[in-house]
């Protein structure tokens, strides 16, 4: 019991986000089903079941268009903050540390400690891959989600076109269509706004105790200091 409590306490951030994610996803599924079936009824068509909806292209495109944009946002943030800095922001490195930094700073190869991950110690290709593994995985998940969005969006778009007695389009036509780019860009702009504004707001505003904020009494121009 104590071990379980300890596990929950020391992993509370990922556990709480996991539960909130599942709750929101289930909520989205029910709301999306209701919206889909409203449209079906209005068009004199048959309603569909919950199971049918959550395996439909309509649900898949709504889910993945948001997923891809979140992973793109964090990919950009992870990679761009290697080189780009923001004076006064806790989201930025100190102004003089822009770049990939030295092996000593990054504790790789000869500078690795006894508790460093194995691939950080071994050098060569494995250390180079491991040194970019966070960005590589976030980028791979982004591309996978964007690809699924394109396929699911294509299917949902063609379902709408058939409903309107129009010819279905090819996948290639769809990825050049206004629907695909509208779905992608509307998500991208909101993610970029949120992350950019957080980097700037955190110069002047504080959240006591949060590692995303500077300590409350820290000067506005202090950069790269997290609370």
């Amino acid at each position: 019991m104590t071990r379980v409590r300890g596990f929950v306490r020391t992993n509370s951030l990922s556990l709480v986000f996991g539960v909130l994610f599942l709750g929101a996803l289930v909520g989205q599924a029910f709301a999306g089903l209701a919206e889909f079936n409203d449209g079906q009824v209005a068009d004199g068509l048959a309603t569909i079941s919950f199971g049918r909806y959550v395996t439909s292209a309509d649900f898949a495109v709504d889910v993945t268009e948001n997923w891809q944009s979140e992973y793109l946002q964090f990919l950009l943030y992870i990679v761009l903050t290697v080189w780009l800095v923001q004076r006064g922001s806790p989201e930025s490195k100190p102004l003089d540390q822009a770049g990939r930094e030295s092996d000593e700073d990054q504790k790789v190869g000869a500078y690795a400690g006894p508790d460093s991950p194995h691939w950080a110690k071994v050098g060569g290709v494995r250390t180079r891959i491991y040194s970019s593994s966070l960005g590589l995985v976030m980028g791979a998940v982004f591309l996978a989600c964007w690809l699924v969005q394109s396929v699911a969006g294509w299917s949902a778009y063609n379902e709408q076109r058939l409903k309107q007695l129009q010819d279905p389009q090819s996948w290639l036509s769809y990825v050049g269509s206004a629907d695909f780019w509208s779905r992608s860009l509307q998500n991208w702009q909101s993610e970029l706004l949120a992350v950019g504004s957080m980097a700037v707001f955190s110069i002047y505003l504080r959240q006591r105790g949060s590692p995303e904020s500077k300590p409350v009494g820290t000067a506005h121009d202090a950069t790269g200091i997290e609370g």
Partner: peptide
């Protein structure tokens, strides 16, 4: 024949 979700052509 093309089928997308609940519609077909």
């Amino acid at each position: 024949l093309r089928k997308y979700g609940t519609h077909a052509y």
